[in-house]
């Protein structure tokens, strides 16, 4: 339930922003990170950014998430085999 995913701020409009995750943009609220700037990386939970991250930290998290997704795909392919 406390899952949070990094994304990059592409557009900023007051406390609302467009944040890009894996190429998909979503509207995210910025009330909890007033210091945020255009282009920043943020950690997003329940439609709100809860923390700013530097790019390297965000990419490290994304790389690990991609690894899990890869493993899960591998697993579901293995499970699908008769």
């Amino acid at each position: 339930m406390c899952l949070a995913v990094p994304g990059q701020v592409m557009q900023l409009d007051g406390t609302s922003a467009r944040v890009k995750f894996h190429g998909v943009e979503r509207v995210v609220q910025m009330d909890l990170v007033p210091e945020v700037k255009l282009g920043d990386w943020v950690l997003v939970h329940a439609g709100y950014a809860i923390q700013c991250m530097d790019e390297e930290e965000a990419r490290e998290t994304l790389a690990l998430l991609a690894q899990i997704e890869g493993e899960m795909e591998e697993q579901s392919r293995a499970e699908a085999k008769p």
């Binding site: 339930m1 609220q29 909890l32 939970h45 439609g47 709100y48």
Partner: peptide, 9 residues
């Protein structure tokens, strides 16, 4: 519902 991750949102 939620812990401190969620309650501020």
């Amino acid at each position: 519902v939620g812990f401190e991750t969620t309650s501020p949102t």
